[in-house]
């Protein structure tokens, strides 16, 4: 019985993915994305011209502190921004060559789950408290694949086993509050990968969890990504968490990308003073007893962006030019981009 259930589910899965095929391995292309929020205090420009791409099987970490626009970028890709107050005045988000922003809402909705999927920061509140977890996972198959109740539930059990929930069969009928935080995040991951998405966006997937569980969840994500050749976008403020998992990093500040690099060179030799500041502010065992370096000041108010480089009020290298002229994101080394007038100084520091 399980084999027929499985083959029926697989056939439906294959049919569902036929419509989107990556072009030259390129899954996602975000081009000059702008997101504005219309508030009573004025227009908050949360994202100002962000461009990046994601290839098949690649993992990209988007780094930045609170308010840098990393979560908004994720929500814009998913298409779950509340419009209004949010507005996307400019930009393209191409998935397998098709512009998601130009798609009719119903067609776009059908890409959420089977094509692009997302897990959220707070696993404790991302599950509906009134339904059993198995029912919620099975819901994915029923909504998108039209499986019947028992087939969908069998798939749910299989997924719960895949994300290493002990006693999956017995716990399929348990409610979210009966699971620990880490287990709930596993269930959330199970829901997100249920339909074999090509892209998984993880918005601070480990922030609400304690350190040992963080490592487990990250390695689970990495494992699943390699197993399914997914493109993974990891959004985090925690540089330590992504070091092992990410292939490339993209650092955001005040709604702009300020540096992109592969994870090794980016961590070893940052090209932007902000990235350097972030890395220096990580506590390290060999520096025990010394004062932790911190970046002075606060991120800028999105309603009142400073002129020139948005980072200049906090930058140790800031000069007259930084106050007047905004640096563009340019290629500073092969495959590395940074937006700073004095990149060379940072690189050679």
């Amino acid at each position: 019985m399980t084999t027929t259930t499985q083959s029926r589910a697989d056939a439906k899965a294959a049919a569902a993915h036929a419509a989107y095929q990556p072009v030259d391995g390129r899954l996602l292309d975000v081009e000059n994305l702008h997101v504005h929020f219309h508030t009573s205090d004025g227009v908050a420009k949360a994202i100002n011209g962000v461009s990046f791409h994601l290839d098949q099987g690649e993992s990209l970490a988007i780094l930045g502190e609170s308010g840098s626009g990393k979560s908004v970028t994720a929500q814009a890709i998913m298409g779950i921004l509340d419009v209004p107050p949010a507005k996307i005045p400019e930009g393209h988000i191409r998935y397998c060559g098709q512009d998601l922003l130009a798609m009719p809402e119903e067609q776009r909705r059908k890409t959420r789950g089977p094509e692009i999927s997302m897990i959220f920061q707070d696993a404790l509140s991302s599950l509906n408290p009134v339904f059993p977890v198995g029912w919620q996972i099975a819901e994915m198959f029923r909504e998108h694949r039209g499986l019947n109740k028992s087939d969908a539930l069998a798939q749910a059990v299989r997924l719960m086993e895949r994300v290493s929930i002990p006693g999956a069969k017995a716990r399929v009928k348990a409610y979210p509050h009966q699971f620990s935080g880490g287990m709930r995040q596993r269930i959330m991951i199970a829901m997100a990968i249920a339909l074999d998405p090509a892209i998984l966006i993880a918005d601070e997937p480990t922030t609400a969890l304690d350190v040992t569980v963080q490592a487990q969840i990250m390695s689970l994500l990495q494992e699943l990504q390699q197993e399914r050749k997914m493109g993974l976008i990891l959004i985090t403020h925690d540089l330590g968490v992504v070091a092992d998992v990410a292939d490339r990093i993209a650092v955001m500040y005040a709604g702009r990308l300020i540096e992109t690099a592969d994870v090794y060179t980016g961590y070893a030799n940052p090209a932007h003073p902000y990235t350097k500041g972030l890395l220096d502010s990580l506590p390290r065992l060999d520096q025990k007893g010394q004062t932790l370096a911190a970046i002075p000041g606060l991120p800028p108010n999105l309603l009142k962006m400073p002129p020139g480089c948005a980072f200049h009020p906090r930058c140790p290298l800031a000069r007259e030019r930084c106050r007047e002229e905004r640096p563009e994101l340019v290629e500073v080394r092969p495959g590395r981009f940074a937006a700073c007038h004095y990149t060379e100084e940072v690189l050679h520091a």
């Binding site: 909705r109 959420r112 999927s117 991302s126 599950l127 009134v130 909504e143 998108h144 959330m188």
Partner: peptide, 26 residues
């Protein structure tokens, strides 16, 4: 605004299903 409603949206639930399964029971 609860996360599970946002999560349901991100996982492609239709508005009708969001209302029926996630909003009304809660």
């Amino acid at each position: 605004p609860n996360d599970y409603v946002q999560a349901a949206r991100a996982l492609g639930a239709s508005p009708w299903r969001i209302i029926r399964s996630h909003i009304l029971p809660n």
